[in-house]
């Protein structure tokens, strides 16, 4: 009999192997979709660290995603940096921004935290519009194919796109898994479950939260930077409030506080819209009804239900 911890590792390793193998079987359309899904699922993983494990509900994560997106995009379009450097700049932008916002927002909690993060993200969105000279505002700008080459590999190529997205997802998932299985992660869960008791046990709760915000913001920025580099478009819609709500939705659907939940939620939402739009023009209606049903019948999200009913050992 395998130990639960081993099962857990194998299960997540299996998911990664499956995603790797998938690229050889998927038809072209779904191949492209999966690349996109994995990038956005990494964003959701970043979000889940803060929301699902630490219990901090942010409504402003789009600013971190956009920091990566614009950090790397502008580094290339305005300063002509290479892809590698641009990626680092994107993540650094997210890291710094999350530290600043984290330091301020952690003075609040609960709904006030939601609003403070929402407001900072709105200010970020408006800032993108304000500097339209460089960002082209809502229209956004494109990164030329020739500028999107990493170590001689063109990121606009289908195969390398999938592979880059997969690598990003691997990094995010393994990091998340390692973190939540570590002592640090256990403290985070303790904070989520009972913040006062954790504090009384001598943990510096605010410090743990602060570190998690930075980590979460940086992963989100990494996903944003990768999105810009793989798909060649940087636009203000990614900084809008919708892109703060989406990760929350994906995480809740897939299962908050599960490592694989963000991916499941993202796949679910993507194909829900994609498939229903093939059947009816009223696909939003379908999406709406499904969301209501999920809220009623699967309160912990897909993976949360799986964990509470079948695989109790799942991280």
């Amino acid at each position: 009999m395998m130990s639960d911890s081993k099962k857990d590792c194998f299960a997540h390793g299996g998911v990664l192997l499956f995603l790797f193998a998938l690229q050889f079987f998927l038809p072209a359309y779904h191949h492209g979709n999966m690349a996109r899904i994995m990038v956005l699922a990494s964003y959701a993983i970043g979000y889940n660290l803060l929301f699902g494990y630490t219990g901090l509900l942010s409504l402003g994560h789009a600013i971190f995603f956009a920091a990566g997106l614009y950090g790397s995009g502008l580094a290339i379009s305005q300063f002509g940096f290479s892809v590698g450097v641009a990626l680092v700049i994107g993540v650094a932008a997210g890291c710094v921004l999350s530290a600043v916002i984290g330091a301020l927002a952690l003075r609040t909690e609960g709904v006030a935290f939601m609003i403070v993060t929402l407001m900072f993200a709105q200010a970020g969105y408006l800032t993108v519009l304000y500097f339209g000279e460089f960002t082209r505002g809502d229209e956004g700008f494109v990164l030329a194919h020739a500028d999107r080459v990493l170590w001689g590999v063109s990121l606009s190529d289908q195969t390398s796109k999938y592979f880059s997205a997969f690598s990003l997802f691997c990094v995010s998932l393994i990091m998340c898994l390692a973190l939540v299985r570590s002592r640090f992660g256990k403290v985070l869960i303790a904070i989520r479950e009972n913040e006062e008791r954790t504090q009384m046990l001598g943990y510096n709760v605010v410090w743990y939260k602060f570190c998690t915000i930075i980590l979460s913001g940086s992963i989100s920025a990494l996903a944003g930077a990768t999105y810009a580099l793989l798909f060649g478009y940087v636009g203000a819609s990614f900084a809008s409030v919708e892109y703060s709500i989406y990760p929350l939705l994906w995480v809740l659907l897939g299962g908050a506080g599960t490592v694989i939940g963000p991916l499941v939620g993202m796949i679910f939402m993507f194909y829900l819209i994609d498939l229903s739009s093939g059947v009816t023009t009223a696909y939003m209606l379908v999406a709406g009804v499904v969301l209501v049903f999920l809220a009623v019948f699967a309160p912990q999200g897909v993976m949360g239900e799986v964990r509470s009913r079948i695989w109790k050992w799942l991280s």
Binding site: I245, L248, L252, L253, A256, M284, G288, L291, A295
Partner: peptide
């Protein structure tokens, strides 16, 4: 949390 998901669904509908 479930209310958020459900009301987002109602918003779409």
């Amino acid at each position: 949390e479930r209310t958020i998901v459900a009301t987002i669904g109602i918003l779409y509908i």
